[in-house]
Design a protein around this nucleic acid. Structure first.
Length: 212
DNA sequence: ATGTCGATTCCCT
DNA sequence: GGGAATCGACATA
């Protein structure tokens, strides 16, 4: 028995989008590079399901979305405006389902996250505190998630050459959470669907009206 | 070849 | 709470 024992994330918890989005709350996202280890707790997610008009997979496979139809646990990284966003592919292979990681709470390697954010952010201001990781684009900057990670398996988290490793770990058993739910952010279709999930009261959850 | 449109972020009022 | 930045994906021709 070691202290700080970490268990792998259970791939079976990615069986369907809504329950996967819940299951990923409290799980840890770990970024290991040659120089440092950055660790964070997932505090906000959104589910995108088969036949969801707001999903990138709606309308079928394209070069950009092909990994959404791949095995659950795969990373789907895409560019929007100036930034990248990270998704976990979920559901049975071939359905095009995924969970968007919208916000994380830094646990370790915070100084390294600040450096990574400052070097990639467009504004002149240096991101600190909750602004470090309280959005889907921000968390990718903080963890140096690039398109190189497209298609990598986040459960096994195998190392990607010089880039290191990006891996999910199970929520620690002692970390009890209360889950809140709301419509998704920024989508123009299926607006009313309550498919955004977040840890109630967590400061890193992206600020939205109606949240606790 | 050209036009439209974001699963966003930042800065300003 | 509003608008600009900014660029690749995708649709249309």
């Amino acid at each position: 028995m070691t202290r700080n024992a970490s268990a792998p994330f259970d791939r079976d918890d990615l069986a369907d989008p809504a329950s996967a989005a819940r299951a990923l709350l409290g799980a840890h996202l770990v970024r290991i590079s040659n120089r440092n280890v950055r660790k964070a707790r997932i505090v906000e997610t959104e589910a995108y399901w088969e036949e969801d008009p707001a999903s990138h997979s709606f309308g079928g496979v394209t070069a950009r979305t092909r990994i959404m139809f791949g095995p659950p646990g795969s990373a789907y990284v895409y560019r929007i405006h100036r930034v990248l966003c990270l998704n976990v592919v979920v559901g049975p292979e071939g359905r095009g389902e995924a969970v968007l990681l919208r916000a994380i709470e830094p646990i370790a390697g915070i100084a390294e996250m600040e450096v990574a954010r400052a070097s990639q952010t467009v504004g002149a201001r240096e991101p600190r505190g909750v602004a470090l990781t309280n959005g889907p684009g921000k968390l990718c900057q903080a963890l140096d998630v690039t398109m190189d990670w497209y298609g990598t398996d986040l459960i096994e988290g195998r190392s990607l050459g010089q880039n290191g490793r990006l891996v999910l770990e199970a929520r620690p058993p002692a970390d009890f959470i209360r889950v809140g739910r709301s419509p998704r952010i920024g989508v123009s279709k299926a607006k009313e669907e309550m498919m955004r999930f977040y840890i109630k009261g967590n400061p890193w959850v992206s600020p939205r009206k109606g949240d606790e």
